[in-house]
Simulated scan of single mutants.
Amino acid sequence: MSEPQKTLPFIYQFASGAIAGVSEILVMYPLDVVKTRQQLDSTNAYNGTIRCIKKIVSEEGFSRLYKGISAPILMEAPKRATKFAANDEWGKFYRNLFGVSTMSQSLAILTGATAGATESFVVVPFELIKIKLQDKASKFNGMTEVAKDIVKKNGVLGLYKGLESTLWRHVTWNAGYFGCIHQVRGLMPKPKTSTEKTLVDLTCGSIGGTFGTILNTPFDVVKSRIQAGSTRYIWTVPSLLTVAKEEGFGALYKGFIPKVLRLGPGGGILLVVFTTCMDFFRTIHEKK
């Protein structure tokens, strides 16, 4: 992202990211359920986004498309808040470190990657619980039940299963997302009205979300399998090789269509809501 017009306190960045994250998840969550089902499926029973949705609804009921949403809702606020706040804070850090006043393409990528690593430590427990609830074989009824089972069997650190693969997933997505936003925004004409600004943000965020998804889907596939509990998948790189060898390279992009349908437009929604909230908070802060 480009440098803000005026630096705002951390709390405003955090709140804007939280509001953006919850807005995105409320709109896009069913596609996340479809994505997870396809990534966990090694029999191709859930091929096709529309087919998968129909299969879930007919066999398990419409509400199943929203099962496990409590974990993402609770996760989205700290997750997206951390994403944007960390990106802004790391951006300030790197600009000071390298003695530059504006964000460059390489700094945008570095900042995004570091923000993604920071975000990973916040989201792992929520992602683990969400995956276990979204799995068709799941016998759990809610996130508290899942959390208690994990802690009972593996201790508190068990909630961080899949941390390494989550780091790969978030570092690549954030680097692609924020790096692409910086590049695309620099190529577009400077908006003159609030409507034009919204359209620019929506375009930049959607392209960034799509590019980030292309980069990180293989890591997301193995992360889902690692967190689902299979003992065959433990570390990211060996898991990538196993999936490619046994199911073909294309299997590393299972769930790509629902994922990109979510995170392409979803990335646009995130950026639009975030920047809108930041503009709102800026007017409040300047009146103090």
Rank of each mutant, 00 (worst) to 15 (best):
G212W: 05
S101F: 05
M143C: 12
G229H: 09
D220V: 08
Q134L: 09
R185C: 11
Y177V: 01
G142E: 08
I53K: 06
H170D: 13
P9A: 08
F84E: 05
G212K: 08
V33M: 03
G68A: 08
I226T: 03
E3V: 15
I56K: 06
L202M: 13
T195Y: 12
V22L: 11
K139L: 02
F84Q: 13
A137N: 13
M278T: 14
T242S: 11
L40C: 07
P4V: 04
P191W: 05
L241G: 03
A85R: 08
K254H: 10
K136S: 11
L31F: 15
T236V: 05
S106P: 02
T276N: 07
V27Y: 10
K54H: 07
T43E: 10
A113V: 11
E247H: 13
S42R: 14
K152Y: 11
D32M: 12
T49P: 02
M188C: 10
K148W: 00
A228W: 01
E145Q: 11
Q227G: 01
T111E: 04
V222E: 02
L270D: 10
V184N: 01
E196Q: 15
P125M: 06
G91S: 13
S70N: 13
V221G: 04
I50H: 08
Q105S: 15
L157T: 11
K54N: 14
V237M: 10
V123A: 12
I226E: 00
T203L: 13
R262K: 07
S2C: 04
Q39S: 04
